[in-house]
């Protein structure tokens, strides 16, 4: 059974149709990349998958582990194993990082019938995971994403991914705003988390992230549709020729 199945997905924001019939199947253990020019619908796809309000599915279906998630709100989808690493992580002034991380982990554990995580043990788990991502202790004590640099925000996204252990991770332009060192740290973080039971969907404008997170499949998105699919070579082709040829084909 596929992990994530996107079937003839049409979606609108307001009255504006953005996604116009996307089909995509991701199996456990696979890394897929979606590439596309600005305005092709990449971020809309990420939000639609995560269940953001205001992004309305008008046709088609999204199935996680064979179950449609269309009727599920964002929080239920997350507890079911979906994770979205944000292109622009949101600052939460006044929300302490540790209590935020603990609430997220506990929400998932309770949904799985597990006990809430032990407070002391959790702090240790977070510190270790953070250290692997080069996240300093004082960042963990701050309010969520407040005063973080662009790179720190992206690392903090991957930290959340590490703690939530999703079955299906969607990385929305995780490379944007990262210098080479940060890109390497973030990519290594993702590669370390990747396992045979997990699917990854990498959404990106540029090829360079795919040098670090090697995709099994690459799809070109243009005008709300997947216009071409292939392997890693397709990403390199885009790097050379740009998106021009693909949008014309759409």
């Amino acid at each position: 059974m596929p992990l994530l199945e996107i079937k003839n997905l049409h979606a609108s924001v307001g009255d504006k149709p953005i996604l116009q019939g996307i089909n995509l199947t991701i199996k456990a253990g696979e890394i897929h990349a979606i590439m596309g020019p600005n305005g092709s619908g990449k971020s809309t796809l990420a939000y639609v998958l995560a269940g953001r309000e205001g992004y309305e599915v008008t046709e088609g279906d999204i199935c996680l582990d064979g179950e449609s998630v269309l009727e599920m709100e964002a929080d239920a989808r997350a507890r079911a194993g979906l994770f979205l690493a944000f292109q622009y992580p949101v600052e939460l002034p006044g929300v302490g990082g540790m209590s935020f991380l603990r609430a997220a982990v506990n929400a998932k554990r309770l949904a799985q019938g597990a006990d809430e995580v032990d407070h002391i043990a959790f702090v240790k788990i977070v510190r270790e995971a953070a250290a692997r991502l080069g996240i300093k202790d004082d960042m963990l004590k701050r309010a969520v994403n407040v005063g973080f640099s662009g790179g720190e925000k992206k690392r903090y996204e991957i930290l959340q991914m590490a703690l939530l252990e999703p079955s299906m991770a969607i990385l929305d332009e995780t490379d944007s705003g990262l210098d080479v060192d940060a890109l390497r740290i973030v990519s290594e973080g993702v590669n370390a988390l990747k396992n045979d039971a997990m699917g990854v969907l990498v959404i990106t404008h540029y090829q360079r992230l795919l040098d670090y997170i090697i995709p099994d499949h690459v799809h070109i998105l243009a005008d709300g549709r997947v216009v071409k699919s292939g392997d890693k070579a397709l990403a390199l082709e885009v790097e050379k020729t740009g998106y021009g040829g693909f949008t014309d084909a759409a």
């Binding site: 994770f83 939460l92 929400a107 998932k108």
Partner: peptide
């Protein structure tokens, strides 16, 4: 939305 996307209820 950010909080909910982490599994935290509305």
């Amino acid at each position: 939305f950010y909080l909910k996307s982490r599994g935290i209820s509305t």
